[in-house]
Simulated assay, not measured.
Amino acid sequence: MSVNEGRRAAQAGEWIAAGHAFVRAAVAGSAEGAELAVEVTVELVPLADGGSAEAAALLAGIYLEYSDHAARPTAMSYARAAAEAGLPAGQRIYGHLLAMGLGVDEDRARAVELFRSAADGGDALGMYDLALLTDDPEKSLTLFEAAARAGVVVAGASLAARLSALDRDAEALGWYVWAAQRGHLGAMNAAACWYRDGFGTTPDPVQAVRWFFGMLANGNGDGVHEAVDLAKAGAVNEKQIREAGRLAGTPTAAESLIGTVFRGGQG
Rank of each mutant, 00 (worst) to 15 (best):
S2N: 14
V3P: 06
V3I: 14
E5I: 08
R8Y: 07
Q11C: 00
A12S: 14
G13I: 14
E14T: 01
E14P: 00
W15G: 00
F22Y: 15
V27M: 12
A31M: 13
G33L: 09
E35T: 07
E35L: 11
L44K: 08
V45L: 02
P46I: 04
L47F: 04
A48E: 08
A48M: 07
S52L: 05
A53P: 02
A53N: 01
S67Y: 11
A70C: 00
T74N: 03
A75D: 02
M76N: 12
M76I: 14
R80D: 13
A89K: 15
G90K: 07
G95T: 04
H96S: 09
L98F: 03
M100F: 09
L102I: 11
D105F: 11
E106C: 02
R110S: 10
R110E: 12
A111E: 01
L114I: 06
F115Y: 15
R116H: 01
D120T: 06
D120I: 07
G121N: 07
G122L: 08
D123R: 15
L125W: 06
M127E: 12
Y128M: 13
A131C: 05
A131G: 00
L132W: 09
L133A: 11
P137N: 05
E138N: 13
L141A: 07
T142K: 14
E145G: 06
A147G: 09
A147S: 12
R149L: 10
A150E: 10
V153W: 08
A155W: 05
G156M: 05
G156D: 05
A157D: 14
A157Q: 14
A160C: 10
R162T: 15
L163P: 09
L163F: 06
A165D: 15
L166N: 15
L173C: 13
G174W: 07
Y176N: 12
V177N: 00
V177L: 05
Q181K: 15
G183F: 05
L185S: 08
L185A: 12
L185N: 04
A187S: 13
A187T: 08
A187I: 01
M188R: 13
N189V: 00
A190M: 02
A191N: 04
A192E: 03
W194K: 11
D197W: 10
G198F: 00
G198C: 02
F199D: 05
P203R: 15
P205K: 14
P205Q: 08
V206A: 11
Q207E: 15
V209L: 04
R210F: 11
F212W: 14
G214D: 09
G214M: 08
A217V: 03
N218I: 07
N220W: 03
G221S: 10
G223Q: 10
G223P: 00
V228R: 13
D229N: 11
A233T: 00
Q240A: 10
L247E: 04
G249H: 03
T252D: 13
E255R: 00
S256C: 10
L257P: 04
G259R: 01
R263Y: 08
G264N: 10
G267F: 13
